[in-house]
Every structure is written in C-alpha cells, then in structure tokens.
C-alpha cells in the first residue's frame, strides 16, 4: 500500500507493516479532508450570493442583516473548528511531518 501522494508520507517513519498501513489509510483520509475543507468553505461562503438583495428585479424580501451576520459567522466558526480538528489530526497522524512519535493505542494496533 503506497502512501497518499503529496502527503510527504513517502518518507514515513518505521513501524510494523500493518500499523503503517493503518496510518497510511488515515493519512489518505486526512489528505482528502484537507482538500475538501477549503472547497466546502468556498461553497458555504458562496451561498449569500443567492440571497435576494431587495432590488426590484429580484423576488422576495431582502435577507435581514442580523440573519446574514449569523449565517456568515456560524459558517466561519464551523470552518475554524474543522480546521482546528484537522490540525489536531495532522499533529496526531502525520507524524512524519510533525516529527512527533505517533501515539500508541492501548490495543497495541496503532
């Protein structure tokens, strides 16, 4: 099982083969998340573009500023939280990058 391209995992640490495989799978998932996160953010931040602005040409009442603020800041906070989780995950799983030893699981599999 080869590591995810671009993850830098081609220089990964040295452990047992199966824990390697496991970590490699996790790392692959991390890379997917890292790719999706900004795209996801872009989509969510693009949503306000669809809101009616109250111009005569557009149907519907304009969105109230308070709702707009709530939406934007909630999305923002959610993205920050996700980014925080991703950063924790990178710290834990991309040990080749952070230089830390991967934390051992109690069941001895990781």
């Amino acid at each position: 099982m080869s590591p995810a391209p671009g993850s830098g995992a081609s220089q990964a640490g040295t452990d047992q083969a199966h824990s390697q495989e496991r970590r490699s799978a996790l790392r692959r998932r991390l890379m997917d998340i890292s790719k999706l996160l900004p795209a996801f953010g872009m989509l969510l931040f693009a949503v306000p573009m669809l809101w009616p602005t109250g111009e005569p040409a557009q149907a519907g009442d304009p969105v109230a500023m308070s709702s707009a603020i709530r939406y934007v800041f909630l999305v923002w906070a959610a993205l920050i939280t996700l980014s925080f989780c991703f950063s924790l995950a990178v710290g834990q799983w991309a040990s080749h990058w952070t230089g830390k030893k991967p934390r051992r699981r109690r069941d001895g599999s990781g």
Binding site: A46, P48, M49, L50, W51, P52, T53, G54, P62, V63, A64, M65, S66, A68, I69
Partner: peptide, 18 residues
C-alpha cells in the same frame, strides 16, 4: 438596531462578493 439601521438589509452585489 442593526436590522433597523440603514444597512439592515442584505444589499451585497454578488459578483463583488465573489
């Protein structure tokens, strides 16, 4: 008070937003 103010409505030009 925000909703009641001059800027209380969503008035963003979507092309400028993007």
């Amino acid at each position: 008070r925000i909703d009641a103010s001059e800027i209380g409505e969503w008035q963003v030009n979507s092309s400028r937003w993007a």
